[in-house]
Computed example of a mutant assay.
Amino acid sequence: MLPVLMFPQFDPVLIHFGPLAIRWYALAYIVGLVLGVILLKRLVAWAPRAASTRQADDFLTWATLGVVFGGRLGYVLFYQPGFYLTHPLAIVEVWRGGMSFHGGASGVIIALALFSWREKLNFLAFSDRVTVCVPIGLGLGRVANFINGELWGRQASDSLPWAMIFPNGGPVPRHPSELYEALTEGALLFTVMILAARRTALRERPGFLAGLFLCGYGCARIFCEFFREPDAFLGFLAFGVTMGQILSLPMIVAGVGLMIHAFRTPRYAGAPLAADHAHDPA
């Protein structure tokens, strides 16, 4: 039997400023959003252009609000509606944890729709650019989950070389499922999205990249859920599936539908939309 790894005792707080603290989890959100908008500005500069760099900058605020409000409300509605129905003030206590990716995704989709309508953008073409950036935040967020020692995996075999004992996971070795998700939902999905985005033929099909992201994330999440311990207050649902797997199925269906739709509609021949495009990088 191989020796089992012990979880490194990371401090979930990066920096203390008196009563204030900057946590790794919050930093992951901030860095993910900033890096995402930097990449988005590059993506909208690639022909065909779906927005201006100014609009890409402006969308950062909309995306932040969509992630935070959508992620929190999604967790409230999907995971613990009974608790928050009786403790409504706890809904705003985001510092205590509790965010849902599926809720955050819904929030960003709403933000995309409103922003595209306000700026008179092609919704699907702009969504294509935004979704390429999302895996950056996903990967960083899962690394932050690992640092926090949360969302650990199911019990693993003692012979698994990277099996790990987590502080709150009991004395049994477990899968470091947060790292599995960081690699699949983050690094792998980001690589797939970038490679697809570099192909002009795919960029000219509004909705294809967005559909690819939805389908890719759904498949990655369903796979990783086989190694992730379900939330204690939910456990396994019917037939041994988890809430994360159930919520990912509609994403896959929607993603496949978007990709099919993309190849059944005319190519997008978007022209430059704003004067500041003249200063966009090549």
Rank of each mutant, 00 (worst) to 15 (best):
F7E: 08
C215D: 14
I260V: 06
A262K: 01
P173N: 01
E181S: 05
Q245V: 06
P81Y: 02
R96Y: 11
E204V: 00
Y268K: 00
I194Q: 12
G235T: 04
N168R: 11
L209F: 06
L140Q: 05
R96H: 14
G257S: 04
I109P: 05
R267Y: 07
W24E: 00
A201K: 10
W95R: 14
Q245G: 12
L188V: 09
R203M: 09
A28T: 04
G257K: 03
F115L: 04
G270L: 00
L151W: 09
Y75F: 14
R174G: 12
N145T: 12
G104S: 01
L73E: 09
R118P: 11
L77F: 06
F83Y: 15
A125C: 01
D280K: 00
R205L: 02
G211D: 13
E150W: 06
S52E: 02
V132P: 14
D276W: 02
F126A: 08
I136M: 10
A220M: 14
V108M: 06
T86W: 07
V34F: 10
C215E: 15
G18C: 03
V34W: 08
P171N: 05
P272S: 10
F233S: 12
G216H: 01
S157W: 00
W24G: 00
L73S: 02
L5D: 13
D128F: 01
A262I: 01
L183C: 13
L33P: 14
M193W: 00
F123V: 08
F226C: 13
S106R: 06
F239W: 10
L40G: 07
P250G: 04
L35P: 05
R72K: 06
L214V: 09
L212W: 00
R96D: 08
A144K: 03
G137E: 05
I165Y: 05
C215R: 03
A210W: 06
I15N: 13
C224E: 15
P88L: 03
V94T: 11
M164E: 00
V134S: 09
G235H: 04
D158V: 12
G36P: 05
W95V: 11
I22F: 12
V31I: 13
G82D: 15
L39N: 03
V130R: 00
A28W: 04
L273N: 10
L124Y: 10
L138K: 07
G169R: 00
L247P: 01
A196H: 03
Y217L: 11
R203Q: 05
L33D: 15
L112H: 11
I147C: 11
G218I: 01
R142M: 02
V256S: 11
